[in-house]
Design a protein around this nucleic acid. Structure first.
Lengths: 203, 203
DNA sequence: CCTACCGATCGGTAGG
DNA sequence: CCTACCGATCGGTAGG
């Protein structure tokens, strides 16, 4: 009935699977994701899904990388038009905020990274390693932007970039909790901006 | 062979089950917890486990409440000998720090709350409600301690207790990530103390 | 990409 | 608290 699709069609199907997997995993976690549920949602067979990835673990990795690409595009690349340093850092934080609050159609269950980071933080394996690598990468990027701001004299000379990046991440973890678990996006918005303003106040 | 235990024995068995459930759930989450695994670990039958709780959901709730009791005892009650206000708040933060870093035998997979808060933040049901209630309770306690410190003049007059409590939670979420996922407890210790010092600096 | 399977495990129940 | 089950679902495979 539906065999022998072209390479382009197969790639599109793969993308559909990954998108749906991201969506499901944002709610139930990457471990809670099941091939059967995915198959039902997409009107495919389980074997049809699995054929694109081989194993569930490979599917989970693909979902994680897909989510990473979206995060990077929305939060990071969306701020690259700004001048490096404090301006870009603030743009990144604003984009991150919108991402957490507004990307509900892509991640109905909230940021897949935050979910995955906690889900795999006590296990071993390629998924934990992949999540840790992405968290480190993101932290390094934030640190670099703070460093640029310090070098440009936009932040006090004694400022430690790693420390600020660490605290920014903390603010966003609290924001995620406030939005997702406590359902208070408006309160979270005010508190997040206030925390960042204090953290990034000009000298 | 082992029927008709006394009430006291049954309660002890129940406690053993809950302790083990907390331990397993700290690694695999409350959804990843399975009755079969629990039974194997404890040398019991699945029916023997389930008899104490009725359903898996009730078992999950019991594990969550058990973890809550431990958290409260270690972090909150452990600081009640300090004078209310900034001193007690600092003692709470220190106890929280030790709890996250040292309670590895109770929570081999890290703080069960942090895990559960993310795990259920996109779902509905009694578990989500229970987690949200506990997070709110904990936040209220922190807020109250900050308020006392402000009233005593130990923190600047304009300080907003809810804001400080929100940021403290963020610092600890970052700490949990640094310890569990990135495996850097020493770095985390320095950054956490620095963040708290700035947050709770005397006027 | 499908149908038709596989063994394993899931939560839960009956009955003692 | 046990044995002995139940139907459902899990990830995955064979073969086309």
């Amino acid at each position: 009935m539906s065999p022998r699709k072209s390479v382009a069609e197969a790639r599109r199907t793969r993308e559909r699977i990954v998108d749906r997997a991201i969506s499901l995993a944002s709610v139930d976690g990457l471990e809670g994701l099941t091939i059967g549920r995915l198959a039902t949602d997409l009107g495919m067979s389980k074997a049809g899904i699995l054929g694109h990835f081989g194993t569930k673990e490979a599917l989970q990795l693909a979902a994680l990388e897909g989510a990473s690409a979206i995060f990077s595009r929305v939060v990071w690349e969306g701020a690259q038009h700004e001048r490096p340093g404090l301006l870009r850092l603030r743009a990144v934080c604003e984009a991150w905020f919108s991402y957490l609050e507004a990307e509900r159609e892509v991640f109905p269950g909230g940021c897949l990274f935050t979910t995955a980071a906690v889900e795999f933080d006590a296990r071993h394996g390629v998924l934990r390693d992949a999540v840790a690598r992405l968290v480190r990468l993101w932290r390094r990027r934030l640190t670099g932007e703070v460093r640029t701001a310090v070098a440009a004299g936009e932040l006090p000379a004694g400022t430690e970039p790693e420390q600020i990046a660490y605290e920014i991440v903390g603010v966003y973890l609290a924001l995620n909790q406030e939005i997702q678990l406590l359902g208070a996006p408006d309160v979270a918005a005010v508190r997040t901006r206030r925390a960042l303003d204090r953290l990034l106040a000009n000298p």
